[in-house]
Every structure is written in structure tokens, then in C-alpha cells.
């Protein structure tokens, strides 16, 4: 028999990545919910292009989305902070702490409610490193580099001469080969290997501009409100299990591939030089904070959190 409720969910990920970052959880949801509800999972750009993704969700063309705020360009005050907010977090566990204990969760919930979208749950993904054709060993190597990256990260990296390029996620590998791109600043090394970018790049920069990507699940507000309470709970459990899977998958994967990976050579920019990037990021935070009171509030939380972590000392922060 047909399930009573069906949702269409589109993820930002292509098939290879979705195999880890969302599919196991959704399949589990479907097995448990059975005839009561099924979520049909679609990959990046499969039903609607990413540029129309937020609107499609808001209008109920699709029912749920897995994405970061930044790349789907949500028309909210918090969009800048989704994806990679430069130097906002160092470890993947920072993200759930920020959302659950430092109040980001509530701000997100309120901001999305204003535009008719239910913010379901935020989780951490991998850190943001460079994968390139040419080795990067100093900031100078970044000049003129055409890099696929997130909008906000691109805006920040432009300060160092990077030329940010936005194309559909699924076209990145091809664009590396057709010469549209020189590199990718989008993910950690696990993702580089999983989605095939390691095959078209040769070098991996160990410095990152953010320790964890902030991504979320969203739903159309009406469609979410129509769910019975126990399915809402099941949905919550599903997303938590998806976040948990990524915690160990990325954390272990990053270390493993740095040590055992054969497709990419590791390079580094010396710490002292990289410190200028971090200093520049803090200036960038101030610029963002001036844009609106809500943004100022979020920046304040990031500052408070990072200060607390520094005070807590090892293992939270070293040096």
C-alpha cells in the first residue's frame, strides 16, 4: 500500500557523498515509519537547481532540504554563518555546542520561522581545506587561484587574491578538467576522496579556514506542522543519527587519509603566516557584525564561545 505521507527531500550532496551524509539516516527513517510516512531522497540539483532551492522549500514544491544556509542563499540574517564562517569553529563538536548550549539554535529557529521555513536541526560536517592542482606553501600562492567555494568563504578568501567561482556542486570535477577551476575550498580530505575530487587535484593544504561546516535540515513549515507528534520525534532522531554518523565518519576519515591517502600530497602554510589569515577573519567578523543587530548577536556568541574554549585550555584549544 502507499504510505500515508510522502515527502520529497533534496540534499546538497551528490550520490557518492549522500551515501554517507544523509542516505543511511533516511533509509532508517523509512524502514521505521513504513506505511505511515516515506521520505524520498533526491540529490543536488535533481529536482530543483540550488539557486531555487530555498524558494522551492518555502513554497512547498519540495518538502524538506538538507543544505547549509549559505549555499542555498536563504533570505535570512543568519545565512552568512551557515557553511563555513571563517575561523568560527575548530572542531566538529563545536557546532552542536554552539547550537544547543550557546543559543544559536533558537536564533536559527526564529529567523527561519519569519520566512515560513522550519529549521529542523543543525549539525557539523568537515573542515574547509584547499584541494588544488598546484602546491600551496604560502599565502602568495593563493593569488589569482580560481577556487570553487562557499559564498561567504569566497568573500573572505578574496582578501587574499583568491577568485571564488560558484557552479553547481556536481559540476566541480568536470570544471577542474575543463579548466574553469584551479582548486576547491569546500571540504576536508574525506570528501575530496569520496566524491572524486582527489582524482582531479594533486595537493591538499593542511591549514583550514574553518574546523567544521554548519549544515542543517529544513522543512516546509505547513508540511512539518501537519506531521503527528511521533513522526516529528522520529524525524528528530533520524537527523541526530545522521549528525552522529558524520561526527565519526569525518573525524576518522580526515586523519586516516592524511596518513594513508595516496592521491594527494600534503602541504602547509607556516603557522605564523596563517595567523595573519585568522587575524583577518576577526576583522571580517566585525564587518559582518555591523550589518545588523541579529548578525551582531551571532558574532557575539561566536566570540564568547571561542573565548571560553581558549580559557578552558587543552584539549579544547592549544595555544
Amino acid at each position: 500500500a502507499k504510505p500515508k505521507i510522502t515527502w520529497r527531500m533534496q540534499t546538497y550532496a551528490g550520490p557518492a557523498l549522500a551515501e554517507h551524509v544523509v542516505k543511511p539516516a533516511i533509509e532508517m527513517f523509512n524502514r521505521i515509519a513504513g506505511e505511515e510516512m516515506q521520505i524520498e531522497l533526491y540529490f543536488a540539483d535533481q529536482l530543483v537547481p540550488t539557486g531555487e532551492l530555498f524558494r522551492a522549500l518555502q513554497k512547498g514544491i519540495i518538502d524538506a532540504v538538507q543544505s547549509d544556509d549559505d549555499s542555498m542563499a536563504s533570505p535570512t540574517e543568519v545565512t552568512t554563518f551557515g557553511g563555513y564562517f571563517p575561523f568560527g569553529s575548530r572542531y566538529s563538536l563545536d557546532v552542536p555546542v554552539l547550537f544547543n548550549q550557546y543559543g544559536l539554535g533558537q536564533i536559527w529557529e526564529e529567523e527561519y520561522a519569519k520566512v515560513g521555513v522550519k529549521h529542523l536541526s543543525a549539525g557539523a560536517w568537515d573542515p574547509c581545506h584547499f584541494a588544488t592542482k598546484k602546491p600551496i606553501t604560502s599565502l602568495n600562492d593563493l593569488k589569482g587561484l580560481r577556487v570553487f567555494t562557499f559564498p561567504t568563504a569566497g568573500r573572505f578568501l578574496a582578501k587574499f587574491g583568491v577568485v571564488p567561482v560558484s557552479i553547481p556542486w556536481e559540476d566541480v570535477e568536470m570544471a577542474m578538467q575543463t579548466g574553469e577551476l584551479d582548486g576547491i575550498a569546500w571540504s576536508g580530505i574525506t570528501e575530496d576522496y569520496t566524491v572524486g575530487w582527489a582524482n582531479v587535484t594533486d595537493y591538499f593544504l593542511t591549514n583550514n579556514i574553518s574546523g567544521a561546516w554548519i549544515g542543517s535540515f529544513f522543512a516546509n513549515m505547513d508540511r512539518y506542522n501537519e506531521l503527528p507528534a511521533h513522526l516529528k520525534d522520529l524525524l528528530q532522531l533520524t537527523m541526530d543519527s545522521s549528525h552522529y554518523y558524520r561526527q565519526w565518519w569525518y573525524w576518522g576519515g580526515e586523519a586516516n587519509l592524511r596518513v594513508n591517502g595516496t592521491k594527494m600530497k600534503l602541504t602547509s602554510i607556516p603557522d605564523e603566516e596563517w595567523a595573519t589569515v585568522e587575524a583577518e577573519a576577526h576583522k571580517f567578523w566585525e564587518t559582518i557584525a555591523k550589518e545588523s543587530p541579529t548578525k551582531a548577536k551571532v558574532v557575539e556568541i561566536f566570540k564568547k564561545y571561542n573565548a571560553d574554549m581558549a580559557k578552558a585550555g587543552r584539549p579544547y584549544r592549544y595555544g
Binding site: 540550488t50 539557486g51 531555487e52 524558494r55 513554497k59 549555499s71 542563499a73 533570505p75 559564498p151 569566497g154 568573500r155 578574496a158 577568485v163 571564488p164 567561482v165 560558484s166
Partner: peptide, 19 residues
Amino acid sequence: FESLMYSFDYGQRSRTAWR
């Protein structure tokens, strides 16, 4: 038309660096 109205309502810009 719906998409155009959305673009007006939210001042929608492209996600690229050129925006």
C-alpha cells in the same frame, strides 16, 4: 513570474562572488 516576485521581495542575488 513567481520566481521574479521572490527575487524582488528578497532582493535575491546570485550566490557567486560577483553577486
